[in-house]
Design a protein around this nucleic acid. Structure first.
Lengths: 477, 477
DNA sequence: CAATTTGTATCTACACATTTT
DNA sequence: GAAAATGTGTAGATACAAATT
């Protein structure tokens, strides 16, 4: 659905011949950038074909290739072979999900805060660390990857999640996002291509943009990314890596079952991709009888596994464990040393205390209980139209029919008193064919507020004709 | 002093004509990379001129340009117009300064640990934070840039260092290195060029390498970087930024006086450079009567100022304050949000407590006392040959005459029981004309050990004929 | 100080793969 | 299913600037 095909013929971007300066490629790139940043060229606009501009300006057409190339590197435009070059969405605005001010008068169903109100056990652990009295050791330099006993605690935690690395292949980072930063900087170069789900974690998308790493969205279904689609993209795009959230993916809520994990692992192995497995929610499922093996284990530890503790235990503590293949060890530790120098010893020690004392498991269980409770509230209100949404998880993925722009939808709902995020924030592709809302169940502050917020949402859906719709959370294409 | 000019004529790199595959530029780049990584082509080796290889292989010579370009992007080689292309030093090995294991049997004069043994006051502050009981608030999401009262404490600290930003232009980072990472990622792009001192902080060099940002070394003298040399490089290289440590620069110990700061600020303003001012040691001089104004103030806040707290207060607490120009605000906060999500609330709060309670100033004074004491130990032993070295500071910069490779010198001294760092680790340029040792005075663990270590150093210098030499710490070209 | 060597920037040329028509 | 449209990858030609001789 090209926003602007050839109906309005006169070239959408028609550089001024007179003001053309030499070197052409630079002066043209600057002009194009100005046009986009000023808003004259809106996101989605189709730019004229390279050959057309070249004809018009009487230049060789690969010179125009350079111009588009320069702007592509800056994330301003993107090209599709056979179709044309388009102004990128998110070219100017930013989509990072930063939590709002808690005192604002809306009910928070947007940010995923992870039941941050339940931290009494964390406070106890904090005190315990101080009483133990080895702060002195902690507050000195050493062990950039983490104290051995902290790493041991991390390994114990990962074990319950189906991850079994060697101790020398584990390190502590300042949160999952920090771990991703270090991994991406250490293992990839600008211009490298990484496969992701069609919808993926928006902070990861922003990070990739900062690092000039190109995300290639891969089609999926109710079981996650499709192995054949991945294989195809490997052929087309010479991929270097892949980013996955196999357990309760953010935002689609999909959990990849074992058989699919095996198939994906095959493709990854065959194409020598570096897998970054962001296991943000595995712990939510850890209590269930069967733990699904991690992709890390399925790949015999020849990948990157990241397990952030902030969401599961406490947002203020910035700690993540990562396991990695021995072949990446040197580069990762080098990156870690140069980007972080080291991680906060105190945070790491509090997490360690929580794990070793067993409190971490209690907190996790507490949060699981909350998750079930809020899940029930959601199902009570939306079960009729979203029958498949009863799983454990911090948020839901609600299909919507309206074609209104994302900003309009979000603003409309905010005016009604709830904050939600539109699927466009999570779309790695340039166009989506279906639209969704991500509805967080863990941030409202109380069950009552959550219920009230969800009620507002339901009312909106009914008033705007969203309901009835052919319900389906399965196809998260 | 080309390590390998044309004495050994047959092309240093002679790709095999037969095994040449298409595409040429890729196959050749891979071959060159293999040769360098395998060690067949040693650091410093001059590669054949582009035209020569092209002639030999019967290819257009810009194709060889592409090959060298690819390897240059990977940091494997570097080119100098008019001289040739050379294999980069540090191409394969890494030079980051990671602290050694404290139990090893040498005396540490290499890493700069900042008297980490004096942290009783830090322990008290840690307890105080817990007793105050607002951990609950701290452990929740909000204020990605830092709590307002934490920022206020940061501003108070910066004030004594001659920095006066607006509150909205201040943020908290997870240590100085983390702040630099965020700044570099947010404000620069791969391929951008940043001016640095000829000798500069080695972790910054490594970070730049990771981010594919090119460092352009600029000549300096006893007062720091030379404004005319900077001006020249701006003309030659189209620079985007500049990195400076105006107070007791690491490793050269140079403090830039006010007049020089003014001159540099002029050049920076005229050439629209983004200044990153790493004020790692200003606090050491804060007690002195006159505080030299920061470059940040001299530029009316149109720059980046970074003030790491780890060295001054406690290595285990990963906190740095940064002030920035309003024109960078949006990008920096965006980068901060996507790279860190947020900084450890606990560490930030402990630092805040230290500042507000006044303990921070006491610790600083304590460390200043230690610095003077260790400085005196150094002067007692080396005052005769290094008369100008009596300033306050955590390390000294000792000129040496030997031309032995850096690794040999360091290993020799390690065998004698002391660890020091050779100037090559800090050299942003490819060749140095003088050599130095950086000698840390704050990491030995005790005055006795320090004295013993320095004695070992002196003995080595006498035995190897280093002493007598025409002493001069002034020329840090 | 002019000629030469050498790397860099820019523009041109062409073959190719995918998508659309 | 063939032809046309369109972006991408690779190679070549030329002008230029800095450093060396």
């Amino acid at each position: 659905m090209p926003v602007n095909s050839f109906d309005s013929y006169p070239l959408t971007w028609k550089p001024d011949k007179a003001s053309l300066q030499t070197p052409y490629c630079r002066s043209l790139a600057e002009d194009l950038e100005k046009n986009i940043r000023s808003g004259r060229l809106q996101a989605g606009t189709k730019l004229p074909p390279q050959r057309e501009i070249a004809d018009y300006l009487d230049l060789n057409y690969t010179t125009i290739t350079r111009v588009y190339e320069t702007c592509k590197k800056k994330g301003l435009v993107y090209g599709v072979v056979g179709r044309g070059t388009f102004v990128a969405p998110h070219a100017t605005e930013e989509t990072a999900l930063i939590s709002g001010d808690p005192r604002e008068p809306y009910i928070e169903l947007g940010a995923v805060n992870g039941f941050s109100e339940y931290s009494a056990l964390v406070e106890e652990a904090t005190s315990a660390v101080i009483e133990k009295g080895y702060l002195r050791d902690l507050y000195a330099y050493s062990y950039p990857a983490g104290h051995p006993h902290q790493l041991a605690a991390g390994m114990r935690w990962m074990e319950q999640l189906g991850v079994h690395p060697k101790e020398e292949n584990v390190a502590i980072f300042s949160g999952a996002q920090n771990a991703l930063t270090v991994m991406m900087l250490s293992l990839f170069s600008p211009g490298d291509r990484i496969a992701t789900d069609f919808y993926t974690y928006s902070n990861f998308m922003e990070l990739a943009k900062l690092l000039r790493i190109v995300l290639i969205p891969v089609e999926g279904d109710g079981e996650g990314m499709r192995p054949d689609a991945l294989e195809q993209q490997c052929r087309l795009n010479r991929l270097q890596g892949i980013y996955l959230m196999p357990a309760y993916a953010n935002p689609t809520t999909v959990t990849v079952p074992l058989s699919r994990r095996r198939d994906l692992a095959d493709v990854i192995r065959r194409n020598h991709l570096i897998l970054m497995e962001d296991d943000i929610a595995a712990w939510l499922q850890a209590s269930e009888q069967k733990t699904i093996p991690s992709m890390y284990d399925l790949l015999d530890g020849r990948s990157i596994y990241i397990c952030g503790m902030s969401k599961s235990l406490c947002p203020g503590l910035r700690i993540a464990y990562a396991a990695f293949g021995g072949e990446y060890r040197k580069q990762i530790l080098h990156g870690l040393a140069n980007i972080n120098i080291k991680t906060s010893s105190f945070d790491a020690e509090v997490i360690t205390e929580l794990i070793l004392s067993g409190a971490a498991y209690k907190i996790a269980e507490q949060k699981r209980r909350m998750t079930r409770k809020t899940g029930k509230i959601f199902t009570d209100l939306f079960g009729d139209i979203l029958p498949d949404s009863g799983r454990e998880g911090y948020f839901r993925w609600v299909p919507i029919a309206t074609r209104e722009p994302a900003a309009v939808v979000e603003k409309d709902l905010l005016r009604r008193g709830i904050r939600v995020y539109h699927s466009q924030r999570f779309s790695a592709a340039q166009e989506e064919d279906r639209h969704y809302l991500r509805v967080a169940l863990c941030s409202a502050g109380s069950p009552t507020k959550l219920e009230s917020g969800l009620h507002t949402l339901r009312t909106w859906m009914e008033e705007t004709g969203e309901i009835p719709l052919e319900a389906s959370t399965k196809s998260c294409s």
